[in-house]
Design a protein around this nucleic acid. Structure first.
Lengths: 236, 236
DNA sequence: TGAGGAGACTATACGGCGTGAAGTTTGCTG
DNA sequence: CAGCAAACTTCACGCCGTATAGTCTCCTCA
């Protein structure tokens, strides 16, 4: 059996990485539709079929790309959250949300890959393509809700949400991280996610552009109202 | 020159309608990806090239389908709005929003067609494929905002939105219909659209499903909080 | 009435796609 | 050095959109 550091394995890992990198470059250039095995192979000086040695099918490759890109998004928003001063709940929340939108605007193709119909015939595997990264993003929003919960609880605690309403994999991450956040807080987090996703998604897909000249202003208003709706008074 | 009711024209109109109908059937069966000229032709006992007599290109056909489907959505939510009792602002708003989600759940492929990357290589014409239907939907949400504005104005009138922030085509519809709604009210309408679109979109694309067992409950909570955020007290 | 023309449709072809089967080269291992 | 497995190519199939050229049918008008 080959040792873990063998030349063969190293070359294989390098080629795998190159395939993914070329695929991401193609996506950035021509959108998710440009991710074709033949185009990747062309770019690498290979035959399309050679890629089957690394990925059983094109969908497997796309799934891996989704994981990669989704993780990059999660990293970006996590970093923004970590950098913002922990004292200011309102500022931290707005920083997180702005990082979310900024990442999407900077990587529209990646956003489409994660959240849209990614590639022509692509069919996501059961449970979604990247549940881990999705849970990471959701956990990030749960952090927003957790930070706001002391102010917001009297507004949202009324709901009749149960732990059983939510996905176990998500709760495995959220409950240990935020022991004081009740089910209603998780529901609040998911709603906030929906709000931000909706505005950004409409913008990325060009639907907002036919309504308003100024999506950024609309998003800023959203953030202002978000903080207010969380019961946080401070202007920032 | 052929008269307007000639046999030729009638046959032509019928064939055009059949193409669109078959395309919609294929979409309902196999998703937007299933809309291929060859599949349509196969279903109709024709050659794929025959369709070029009716649509210059596949994208033209898709654009027409988007218009058709988008109009169906607009009809559905308009009807829900018209049927709900005009007196109860809260009930009317919730009815509208529920109609929006119900239509999306009943026509997920249509929703994807309208709001997602529709079909493999499809490139929407400038200004979006169906600005009219989009404006109709937005006008519908503006009606929500207008109905709520007496309660909501003290919460949202502060913003510094101008008429010039919005698309002229949208304002052509909104301003005559709701003369009392200021720019801040239109911004509110777009934000509400974003909120609802986000939750429904996450649900349709399967991202919510990996977080919560019960998207309907989450949406109901959204509606409750929406009405509250509009300053409407009444439970319904 | 019969010729001309327009419109509807087919046949053929090209290049691109994902993918399966079979064959060939390369390099490690015993 | 023999053998083997991994990496890669070649060929093939059926799908796609679409361009070009040809055929058939029916309407119109002299």
């Amino acid at each position: 059996m080959g040792s873990t550091g063998g030349r063969r394995e190293r070359l294989r890992a390098e080629t795998t990485a190159e395939i993914k990198q070329v695929a991401l470059k193609l996506m950035a250039t021509g959108g998710p539709d440009a991710i074709t095995l033949r185009a990747i192979a062309r770019e690498m000086g290979m035959t399309a079929n050679a890629i089957y040695g690394y990925f059983a099918t094109r969908d497997d490759l796309v799934t891996m790309l989704i994981n990669e890109v989704y993780t990059a998004l999660a990293d970006a928003v996590d970093a923004a959250w970590a950098e913002a001063p922990a004292g200011h709940a309102a500022g931290r929340i707005q920083t997180w949300a702005r990082a979310f939108r900024d990442w999407a605007l900077a990587n529209p193709e990646g956003f489409r890959l994660i959240y849209g119909d990614p590639v022509p015939g692509y069919q996501a595997p059961e449970g979604g393509a990247a549940p881990d990264a999705a849970h990471r993003v959701c956990t990030g929003i749960a952090a927003l809700a957790d930070a706001a919960w002391p102010h917001a609880r009297h507004l949202y605690a009324h709901g009749d949400f149960q732990w059983s309403d939510f996905d176990a994999g998500l709760l495995d991450k959220v409950r240990p991280a935020f022991p004081d956040l009740p089910p209603a807080g998780v529901a609040l987090a998911l709603r906030i996610w929906g709000h931000l996703h909706g505005l950004v998604s409409l913008e990325i897909y060009g639907h907002l552009h036919t309504q308003t000249i100024n999506p950024g202003k609309l998003f800023q208003e959203e953030l202002t109202q978000l903080v207010r709706s969380l019961g946080i008074d401070s202007k920032e």
